[in-house]
Computed example of a mutant assay.
Amino acid sequence: MTKRHLISTLALGGATALALSGCASGAEAETLDNGDRQDLTIAVFNGWDEGIAASELWKAVLQEQGYDVELEYADAAPVFQGLSDGDYDVTLDTWLPITHADYVEKYGDDIVDLGAWNEDAKLTIAVNEDAPVDSLADLAANADAFDDRLVGIEPGSGLNRVTTDSVIPTYGLDGMDYLTSSTPAMLAELTAATDAGENIAVTLWRPHWAYDAFALKDLEDPEGTLGDAEGIHSFGSSSLEDSHPTLAGWLKDFRMDSELLYSLENAMFNENDTDDYGPIVEQWIADNQEYVDSLTS
C-alpha cells in the first residue's frame, strides 16, 4: 500500500501573485483578456483532501489560462474570516447545509455562494473493517476494544462541532477520549493502527482517499446525528464577481462527480509519496482532457 506523504499545514501553492490595486505601490492589477484580474488567491482547508484536489486542479487549469494563482492553507475559521475580509478570493470546500453552516451564517453577508460542485459529501465515524461494532449505538459498550479513544481532526472544523455537539452526547460517548489535533495527525493514527492490526475509530468524511487506502467501514448512525449527504460549494469574496467575472461563471457551472474526484485524489494522495502535486495533476488532466476542457468552455 502506498502511503500519502502528509501535507505541511503551512504549504503554499504555485506562483506568487502580482501586486493588487490598492497596494502601497498604487499599481493597478493586471487584467486578462477575459476581463478577470490576473492574480487569484484560493484558500484551502488544512487536511481536507477533496478541497486540496479541487484547488490544485483549478490552479493548473487557470495557470494555463494565464492567471497567477496562489494557494494558501488555513483552518476553516481563518479561511472564512479571510474570505469575508477580501484577503482570499475563493475557497472550494464549503459543506452545506450542515458542516460549515455556522461560518456561512456568520459571514454570509460578506461572501458569495457560487453553488455546489459535488452533492455526495457525507460526514462519518469510520472504523477498521473487522472492528467488532457496526453502529454508533454499540460503540460506547465496546469502547475498550478501541482503547477508549475516538480520533478526530481539527478543533475548528465543522466535523468536530457535529461530533462534539451531537454524536458524542446522543450515543453516550463521553467516556471515550476524544482526541482532536489535525487531519494529518488523524491519518497518522489510522496508518499506525492499520499497520499494527489494531481497532481504531476516527472522524472522517466521504469523499476521501482513505476509503481506498484502508479497509474501513462507516458506523451506522441510527439517530441521524451526522446528517444526510451534503453539497460541496465554492464560495467567493464579495468582490469576486467584479474582480473575476469570468471565473465566477466557470465556478458556478463547475461539477465533479465522486468517481472523478476519487480518481484525482487517488493519484495525488494514495499513489504519490510527495507533496509535489503539479506533475500528478498535469498527468490527470491529460488523462481526462475532455472533462477538463469543459471547465472553461
Rank of each mutant, 00 (worst) to 15 (best):
G175V: 01
A193G: 06
M186I: 00
L219N: 11
T183D: 03
G227Q: 14
R206D: 07
E220W: 05
E220K: 12
G231V: 08
G197Q: 14
T203V: 15
D174L: 08
W209A: 12
T170E: 08
Y171V: 14
T163G: 07
Y211G: 12
V202K: 02
M186P: 00
T203H: 04
G175R: 00
H208T: 09
L179Y: 08
D177R: 09
S157W: 00
S157L: 01
D177W: 05
I153N: 09
S182E: 07
T180Q: 10
L204W: 14
D195E: 15
D228T: 12
V202D: 09
L187I: 09
D212V: 07
T191E: 04
I168L: 09
D195T: 11
L179E: 15
A196V: 11
F214D: 04
E198W: 03
I232T: 15
L173N: 03
P207N: 14
Y171C: 13
G172L: 04
G175S: 01
H208L: 08
K217A: 01
T203A: 11
A196M: 10
V162P: 03
G172K: 01
A192E: 15
R206V: 03
T170I: 03
D212R: 11
N160T: 15
I200S: 05
A185C: 01
F214T: 05
L216E: 15
A201W: 01
S182W: 05
R161D: 15
K217S: 02
T164E: 06
L226T: 14
G156T: 11
D218M: 13
T203I: 12
P169M: 07
I153R: 13
L187D: 02
D165F: 00
A185M: 05
T163K: 00
E154M: 04
D195R: 02
E189H: 10
D177A: 13
L204K: 02
Y211C: 07
M176Q: 10
V167H: 04
A201H: 06
T163I: 06
P222R: 02
V202F: 07
Y211Q: 08
F214P: 02
M176T: 10
Y178I: 09
L226H: 09
Y178K: 06
T180L: 03
R161G: 07
A210N: 06
A210K: 05
L226C: 14
D174W: 09
G231E: 09
G172I: 03
Y211S: 11
T170P: 03
S182I: 07
D174H: 12
E220T: 12
T163D: 08
E189A: 14
P169H: 05
D177Y: 11
S181D: 15
N199G: 12
T164G: 06
G224W: 10
E223M: 06
I200C: 05
L187M: 10
G152C: 08
L204E: 11
A188L: 02
D174N: 13
H208V: 06
I200M: 06
M176R: 06
E230V: 00
I232Y: 13
E220A: 15
N199Y: 08
A185T: 10
K217H: 11
L173R: 04
P169Q: 06
A193K: 06
A192C: 15
T194L: 07
